[in-house]
Amino acid sequence: MRVLFLMIKENTNGNRTAKWLMIGPPLLFLLIFFVVPSLIMIVTSLRYPGEFGGLAPIITPAGKVSDGYGLTLEAYQFLLSNSLYAEIFLKSFGVAAVTTLICLIMSYPLALLITRSEKRFRNLMVLLVVLPLASNFLVRIYAWMIILGPESPLSHLINTILSVLGVAPLTLLFSPFAVLVGMVYVHLPFMVLPLYTNLEKHDPVLLDAAQDLGATSWQRFWKVTWPLSLPGVFAGSALVFIPVLGMFAIPEMLGGTGDILIGNLIKDQFLGTRDWPFGSALSIILTLAVLSIAGLTAWFTRQSGGMKYAE
């Protein structure tokens, strides 16, 4: 009995060492390089900006405690004082919403077709959706700079048609339209995947039952497939909406001078004007937006999941 007890004890001791050998290194690394930097960002948003960018020094070169010492809500007040920033936030949400909607409209039929295809084709069809992600992000945007550029065959075609109709020629590139195309192109696979994963799990018996009860194909879709697919729709929407909200490279490369989103604003505060507190405040607001979207998605998913059992 004692021997057994000792064995168990030794066992748990050994396990505890093994446990912390496993948990320790990744936890420590991410505490230092993810959690602490996030906290630093919060503190930075509450500090005074420096005269030449960055932060105000706590100790002046003369050795005195500077006026910039201490915390302030200045950056947030500045953010609220100018309606321009609210507009940019609103516009970013608008772009994210429209991108998500277009992705959903394009992805749903595709995901549905994949689930209805023969089993041996399904993996290949999914792989073909994901594969473009393997190409560099910049390359994918660059491709649209070529396609929408003024010398491209597409631009020529559209402008020839327009000139026949007597309308002034259009520039496709460097416009809100180009930004939207780029956003949809880069994020589309993220919508298809969760949709397919959800649709694949549906029991076909449900559709047969609905048909036996006299439901038309349209009714079968809206009363059976669509409500059951809502968790997939929400998951895909979050995966598209959140990264679009923080995107700065696509507006910068495909958009015109007026197509500024939150991401561009943040980028400029760190690599342009160097107003760190303001840039951090913008980042904090973006973080809060992302967290609330993630929370809402989780809530909606639970709601739609609960409905399934209630009915």
């Binding site: 390089f33 960002m41 990264p243 923080g246 991401g263 993630a294």
Partner: peptide, 15 residues
């Protein structure tokens, strides 16, 4: 993995 990249970039830059 879930955080928008720009936020990771900014916080690491400051850190």
């Amino acid at each position: 993995v879930a955080t928008p990249e720009i936020l990771l970039g900014v916080s690491l830059l400051l850190f």
